[in-house]
Nucleic acid binder design. Structure first.
Length: 682
RNA sequence: GCCGAGGUAGCUCAGUCCGGCAGAGCAUCCGCCUUGUAAGCGGACGGUCAGGGGUUCGAAUCCCCUCCUCGGCUCCA
């Protein structure tokens, strides 16, 4: 008579023979809905853990299936895909050493130490081999092994033994961090006999029982290789072991894996769509921006069309900033090195600053500004400040220059010269939370105005582990203030531990674009440090001097980055109020140029940005030119229109309308433009 | 900075492996056409083949260095 266990799912409960697997339990409980990749087991003490379907479940637990088409389920099947890839690499490149292979957003990677970097042809071979292995229906078999046995088994895998060693000195958590979303280390908690950690090894077992491959891994995995239904290898790249430059460079292969071929296809199409929308490509095609080699990496020229879009953005933020009680300033691009010594930038930020400009007749070098804050402090200290003036919100569109390392510059998303819609709010300690809440609401309004909807994520970044200045008390106060503000603004927020700036913690606000990608845009930082370093003060109602807090905030973040996000999110087809050219006049033949000019003039008189196509191309040719330029409205005019004082309206999106009265169209487009600009200039 | 892939006309790309007159389409300009909703026809213009050095009778092509771009590591607005 074998002992029995009890398992539950919701209200259901059932008794099973001891040794029953998670899959058997779920079947007995009739708890399987759709495709599942693993189980979630909630132990009697309330902790929930992911569990292999073929792994026996303990007594008195709650079990549930993890569906393949959830984030959690995809992470598991991607992790299994990473194993499959490592096995294929091992087959094709004998002697390859494996490091870690976690699932990441939308995919997975695995790092290898191999003789030579992988070529695109290698990736094709590896992927083909993965398909063969998947068809073999190898089972992923979990096995717990003692530390010594693990060390022995992976004696010829230095990175695996290093992971095991990391558990020993208690730094396994840092190894987990290296792995990103998840990690490969098989440390399954310090639960082994005698306090020794127990490791788990996953073996890929062929139907005949032969062990094809084994990896140290925390799991769980899908039950068998054919349960990784759709995958594709995307690219290879160098990556440092443990992400540290003093460590060997490994070869990383990125792949993506999905619960179905359909989902994979949809993802690959999204990648293609992203490529089509790339702001560098559209910027060139639509003549928005220019990045000639002579200019230098990370620097941009805004051509007239791009500049008009940017002007709309700047007008919006300038007007809105003034309306919300900020005051404007203008500051220079360079300043004496001493300023940056006082601010602490030279000590904490030097590697991101351009080198000093030495001048013969000056005792001090000058530096390009990487941030605007010291200048705004100088604006603050231009005279004695009273508590009655606080909060004092100083704002500027300030262009900063940062010497980003050559490998990290990325179009306008990560640039060396960029403009922040920067503001520094000087306030009393008790005003910090209110000010941060206002900033979050301001950011929300901005995202809405520019068509990004609600923020997708709010994250509070806390004190960095390494470089930072200030006392624990100051950091705690500031971090608490940010969390309180985040709570009051009603957003769920997450904590990014150790991701703060060197001078204080911050809130970052992210948004999703039209094709679902997430961008970090707004940043709000609380600073107690610069006020101290510059010894700034205000006179309180007690007549004594007090030190204010500073809130740094940039809502667009970087105008260039936000511009790039706009280009990509709108696919270059801007809403009318942002579009560089709002209306394109197309005469059907040269005879009607006069009437086209007349209509254009009436539009221009109301402030609409309008152009007339005076080329001698065919009508089809001119229509095509208008469409490919993505102008919101094309107006076709010929004899009948001139006669009746009408236009034929061809919107970029939507159906064309004929015989629209000119005055009606003007009123329509003017209203549309006004509507998209909640606070029109003037 | 490190690893990999690239750089040919304003744009998109052939030609590079295997050294032998530098090409196509689009754009631009000129001419013809006088047009009714996504490319009319013809011609012209346009190149230090990223830059420099080397090998060679001869280099876009092979070798070396530098710059720049792309994808990553890392970082970040």
């Amino acid at each position: 008579m074998s002992p029995s266990i009890t398992v539950r799912h919701g209200d259901a409960s059932v008794q099973l023979d001891a040794g029953a697997t998670a899959l058997q339990a779920l079947k007995a409980l009739e708890a399987i809905r759709g495709a599942i990749v693993a189980a979630q087991v909630t132990l009697p003490d309330g902790t929930a853990r992911q569990w292999d379907l073929d792994r026996p479940v303990p007594d008195d637990v709650e079990v549930a299936g993890i569906a393949a088409d959830t984030d959690e389920g995809r992470a598991i099947l991607r992790h299994s895909a990473a194993h499959l890839m490592a096995q294929a690499v091992t087959d094709l490149f004998p002697g390859a050493k494996w490091a870690i292979g976690p699932p990441i957003t939308d995919g997975f990677y695995y790092d290898f130490d191999v003789e030579r970097p992988f070529t695109p042809e290698d990736l094709e071979r590896i992927e083909a081999r993965m398909h063969e292995l998947a068809r073999e229906r190898q089972r992923y078999v979990r096995e717990e092994v003692a530390r010594e046995a693990a060390l022995e088994e992976f004696a010829d895998q230095p990175y695996k033994t290093a992971i095991i060693e990391l558990v020993d000195d208690g730094t396994i958590l840092s190894a987990v961090d290296v792995g990103g979303d998840d990690e490969q280390a098989g440390a399954d908690g310090a639960e082994g006999a005698g306090g020794e950690p127990t490791f788990t090894v996953y073996r890929n077992v062929r139907p005949g029982g032969e062990v094809a491959w084994s990896d140290l891994c925390r799991g769980p995995h899908v039950p068998s290789t054919e349960r990784v239904p759709a995958f594709k290898l995307l690219r290879s790249a160098g990556a440092y072991w443990r992400g540290r430059e003093d460590q060997p460079m490994l070869q990383r292969i990125y792949g993506t894996a999905w619960e179905s071929k359909k989902a994979l296809k949809a993802h690959l199409e999204l990648l293609e769509e992203a490529k089509r929308r790339d702001h560098r490509k559209l910027g060139r095609e639509l003549e928005l921006t220019h990045h000639p080699d002579e200019l230098g990496p990370g620097l941009s020229i805004f051509l007239p069309a791009g500049a008009l879009v940017r002007k709309q953005m700047e007008d919006w933020i300038r007007d809105e900033t003034l309306a919300r009680g900020y005051v404007p300033v203008y500051t220079p691009h360079i300043a004496k090195e001493d300023l940056w010594r006082i601010s602490g930038h030279l000590q904490n930020y030097a590697e991101l600053m351009y080198p000093g400009m030495e001048l013969d007749d000056s005792a001090s070098a000058y530096r390009l500004k990487p941030m605007n804050c010291p200048f705004h402090i100088l604006a603050y200290t231009s005279r004695t400040r009273s508590y009655r003036e606080l909060p004092l919100r100083i704002a500027e569109l300030g262009t900063v220059y940062r010497y980003e390392r050559s490998g990290v510059v990325n179009g306008m998303l990560r640039a060396r010269g960029f403009t922040q819609d920067d503001s520094h709010i000087f306030c009393r300690a008790d005003q910090v939370v209110d000010e941060v809440v206002d900033c979050i609401e301001f950011a929300r309004d901005l995202y809405a105005a520019f068509g990004l909807g609600e923020p997708s994520r709010v994250a509070v970044s806390t004190r960095p582990d390494d470089k930072s200045i200030g006392t624990d008390e100051q950091w705690q106060y500031a971090e608490r203030a940010l969390m309180q503000a985040a709570e009051r603004s009603g957003y769920d927020y997450q904590i990014d531990a150790g991701e703060g700036a060197f001078y204080g913690p911050k809130i970052d606000i992210h948004a999703r674009d039209a094709i679902g990608r997430e961008w970090q845009l707004t940043t709000i930082q609380v600073d107690f440090n610069l006020p101290e370093r510059f010894d700034i003060s205000y006179v309180g109602d007690d007549g004594a001097k007090h030190q204010p807090f500073m809130v740094h905030r940039a809502l667009f973040g970087s105008i260039e980055r936000f511009f790039a996000v706009m280009v990509e999110s709108f696919n270059g087809a801007f809403p009318t109020w942002l579009a560089p050219v709002q209306v394109q006049l197309v005469p059907v033949a040269a005879d009607f140029l006069g009437y086209a000019d007349e209509v254009a003039g009436r539009l221009r008189a109301t402030g609409v940005r309008v152009e007339v196509d005076a080329s001698d191309g065919t009508l089809g040719n001119k229509i095509r030119a208008a469409q490919t330029s993505k102008v919101p409205y094309t107006l076709v005019v010929g004899a009948s229109e001139a006669e009746a004082q009408t236009v034929a309206v061809r919107p970029y999106r939507g159906d064309q309308r004929k015989d629209v009265q000119v005055e009606a169209f003007v009123a329509e487009v003017v209203a549309e433009i006004a509507e998209k600009r909640p606070r029109e200039h003037g």
